[in-house]
Design a protein around this nucleic acid. Structure first.
Lengths: 172, 172
DNA sequence: TCGAGATACTTAACATGTTAAGTGACTGCG
DNA sequence: CGCAGTCACTTAACATGTTAAGTATCTCGA
């Protein structure tokens, strides 16, 4: 269906096109990528000062809110793939920011928790992080920010169960 | 076989600790990341069938719309960092999907353009890509999609010139 | 109880993100 | 001219994204 997508008033488009595709810079993936980059650009320098990457920070934050978590659960929470998480946990453990112990009931599972040093590091970064977030919120507008996140959640929902074999159906 | 009623809703350990931070999963960066991943998950398998990564596809699309571009210009258009682009161009050139020649007026500059093979490859992928995009548009709603992209653009704008990147601040 | 299959990670291999340093080519100023 | 500074990339080094294999453990049913 798609009755009629609003015609973008194509302001410039100075160059001739030979391929029938939407203007590349207006694609949804690009919009999302640029927006996210604009946001993360604000946080990265501060995290870097503390020797943390964005992903490492995500893991610490996720762990700070709970007693302990299995690796798979943590991967879901921090939105990281297993292999990435595996590497990062190895590193964080070596830096004594987290602790691990195998679950007694199932030797395959590893319970991960934040260490005292990890908590300390979080405490030293959180204020700056919150300040940056507050600045972003103020600039963009709290209401619009909430609206945006609502829409992002809806987008995620409307695409849930499209690409990945989730239930039954065919594989390929 | 082995039907296995997994336990996703496992009793788990909802132990919460009082930490003075927003709920991690509701942060703007995470919302943007998840939304983008939900979208890209739809495209990646098809691109992979054609031996292309998301970034390689971005470059080909960017090049298809113009005659030729300098590397720096291409990096801006495809939203890639110089080093990434450098590596990808090396690969794409080896696969004869693009062509390069140094500018006559300035030996430092390299002019990049898509090759015949590149155009052919694009033609073979574009239909599926557009179909997927249409499906996403339909599911989420064309109007909402336009709204979302508008907001993403505004977010980007409101953060422009905040990051301590170079540039003497202010505007231009 | 035993073994095929499932599960929970971990490794491997390759591609990109990210920052810093390197290389060759231009530019401006003396 | 000459050469220090800049520019346009490219390399390097390390971290993560992504898919495929590998390893150890656990589960279930014949």
């Amino acid at each position: 269906m798609a009755k009629r997508p609003p015609d973008p008033a194509n302001g410039n488009a100075p160059v001739a096109r030979q391929v029938p595709m939407r203007d590349f810079s207006r694609s949804l993936p690009m919009s999302l990528l640029r927006a996210r980059e604009a946001v993360m650009r604000q946080f990265r320098p501060k995290l870097r000062e503390h020797g943390l990457t964005e992903q490492q920070w995500r893991i610490l934050r996720a762990l700070a809110a709970i007693e302990a978590a299995e690796v798979t659960e943590l991967a879901r929470t921090a939105f990281l793939l297993g292999p990435s998480l595996s590497r990062i946990l190895r590193d964080l453990e070596a830096r004594n920011l987290i602790e691990r112990r195998t679950a007694k009931s199932d030797q395959r599972r590893s319970m991960v928790s934040i260490s005292k040093d990890g908590v300390k590091l979080m405490a030293s970064v959180a204020p700056s992080s919150e300040a940056i977030y507050a600045e972003i919120t103020q600039r963009f507008g709290a209401r619009k920010l909430a609206e945006l996140q609502e829409m992002l959640g809806e987008l995620e929902q409307s695409l849930a169960g499209l690409g990945a074999a989730d239930g039954a159906s065919a594989e390929e």
